[in-house]
């Protein structure tokens, strides 16, 4: 089953990290990459640009509009995600626990209902 690990954390917290803290967090990501690539569960991973650069497409007053910024002002933002091919929820949450955002943020683990094949790289 495919699972996605959605990484939520306050962007402000990530911005305030010192270079050493940032490097430590990246090392934990590299470790998860290594483990999941090694056992074949890795499918994809991405880090998103901060929500300040997001554009929200939404229908309002009968008109489709583009709005700068994320769709909701929340304390924590979606910063990135992993897609892993796991045997069980337990395995997926095990990988989620390896992520550096766990102490202050949270990881939402959700099975993927449908995912198309990855296209050839453009």
């Amino acid at each position: 089953m495919l699972y996605t690990l959605l990484i939520y954390q306050a962007e402000e917290e990530v911005e305030a990290l010192s270079a050493a803290e940032e490097e430590a967090a990246l090392a934990e990501h590299r470790k998860l990459h290594e483990v999941t690539r090694g056992n074949g569960t890795f499918v994809a991973a991405s880090r998103l640009v901060p929500t300040g650069a997001a554009t929200t497409v939404r229908r309002k007053d009968g008109e489709v509009r583009l709005i700068d910024g994320p769709f909701a002002e929340t304390k924590e933002q979606l910063l990135g995600l992993y897609i892993l091919d796991c045997a069980s929820l337990e395995e997926a949450t095990g990988y989620a626990k390896m992520l550096p955002s766990v102490p202050t943020g949270c990881i939402e683990v959700r099975p993927i209902m449908y995912m198309s094949d990855p296209p050839e790289k453009r």
Binding site: V49, G52, A53, T55, L66
Partner: peptide, 17 residues
Amino acid sequence: RQMIVEGQALVEQALRR
């Protein structure tokens, strides 16, 4: 590269207005 991607996204977002 990450800063460049973010910068480019912000330029596009701003110029759209």
